[in-house]
């Protein structure tokens, strides 16, 4: 299967989060677990989606084998808007 990560928006802050190999929600795509086995990914998705007190709109997003976003929408989610230096891109610099 294609490479995938589990992503959502945080319930309180609303920002983009990813599921880490340790099962924690992390803010940076580079810390996300990359799934290559479809059955494992689907199974983890169900578990993650059940964490409704932490995350909203949980889904699988495709990444490249190197872990970069495969689609431009995911690239914006991972970095922030292009018209203002806000969102994830500021956290990465810090």
């Amino acid at each position: 299967m294609k490479h995938k990560v589990i992503t959502a928006n945080a319930l309180v802050e609303g920002d983009v989060i990813y599921l880490s190999p340790e099962g924690a929600w992390v803010r940076d795509l580079v810390e996300a677990e990359i799934f290559t086995d479809e059955a494992v990914a689907e199974d983890m998705l169900l578990t993650a989606a059940a964490r409704t007190g932490e995350a909203v709109g949980v889904y699988l997003a495709e990444v490249t084998p190197e872990g970069a976003p495969a689609h431009f929408r995911e690239a914006f989610r991972a970095s922030g808007p292009s018209n203002r230096f806000h969102g994830k891109q500021t956290q990465r610099e810090a």
Partner: peptide
């Protein structure tokens, strides 16, 4: 109630929308 887990997102979403609150790409 949503933050305490007493409402699911499915229950909460129509309530927040009626009050103008969306969940967008990077934030509410």
């Amino acid at each position: 109630r949503r933050l305490l887990g007493e409402l699911t997102e499915e229950e909460f979403k129509p309530l927040r929308l009626m009050n103008g609150l969306y969940l967008q790409l990077h934030a509410y």
